[in-house]
Amino acid sequence: MKKFKVNDKEFEMVDKIEEITLYQYQMIEFLLQNLGKLVDSQILQNIIEVLSNQELNTLGDMESEVMNELTDAFTKLDYSNLEKFKNNKNHLVIDGVDYAIKTNGDFNTFKSAEKIYIDIMRRDMLKYLKGGRDWKKYYDLIMDGSVGKITMEEFYKEMEDVDMEDFNKFLLAKLNSEIDINFTILSIMIQPGTSKFDEERKEEVWIQKEFSTQNLNVRKDILRKNLKALDGIKPLSFFLNGNSGSQIDSQNSLEEKQKQSQEEVLLNQ
C-alpha cells in the first residue's frame, strides 16, 4: 500500500495488481471507459479515490506533486495486464471462512433456487433502469441496442437534446446496478464450503454447503470489500460471456398456440 496525505489526513492507495479488489477493478474500468466525457485530471483523482477506498469526489484538492506520484504508481500497476493474471481457483479464505468457488465446468451443479435468484435480480435491475426517473430514453438508446442500429451522426443528434448531468447519473446508476448484480452472481458462485479428497482425481475438491438465501446480502458485502479482482474475474466471466442457461420461451409457445388455433378455424370452415 502506498501512503499519502491530503489536507494533513493520511490515506493508503493500492499499489500492487494482486491487491486490487473486484469492486475497484469494475469502478476503474468504468472511469477509463468514460475518458472522453470527463476531464482527465478528474478521472485520475477518481481513480485514486477508488484505489484508496474513498467515495468518489470526496478526497478534496491534492497537491500536484502527490497527484503525480500516485498517477505514476497507478501506471506501474500494469492494470491492462490484469486479464493475463486471473486465476482459476476453486477455493479461497476470507476472514477465516473457507469459500468454495463454482468453476466454469460446474454449471450442472447450479440449484434451481440459485439460478432463479440470479434471474430475478437481473430482471429487477433492468426494470429499475427502465422505469427509474426519466431514464427510458437512455435505456432504449444504450441498453436496448438502438445505439448499434443508428449512425454516429444520428447518435450525436439524439445526444444534443440530452442533459449530460442527467445522462451521467444514468450511467452511474447503470454501473452501480451492474456491480450489484455482479456481486449477487458472485455470492452464489462463491459460497462457504468444505473440502473432500477425490480418490479418482487424486486431488482435493471443494464442495459448497447447502444453498440458503439467508446470508446472500451479507456475503455480497463481504465479497465487495474483500474479493480480489484476480480471484473474482474468472467465476464472473462465466455469466458475462452470455451463457446464462436456457429459459422457457413462453412467447414462442404462445405464438405456436395461436397459429394452431388459426389453422383449426380454417379447417373447421
Partner: peptide, 28 residues
C-alpha cells in the same frame, strides 16, 4: 414464470417447493 415452473415440477404441491429449489437446475 419461475413460480409456475416450480409449481409444475412440484405437481402443484407447495410443500414440495423447497425440494425442487435445491434440485440441480439442469435436471429441472
Amino acid at each position: 414464470n419461475h413460480i409456475a415452473m416450480i409449481d409444475r415440477l412440484a405437481n402443484g404441491d407447495i410443500t414440495k417447493y423447497n425440494t425442487i429449489y435445491l434440485m440441480p437446475y439442469e435436471e429441472c
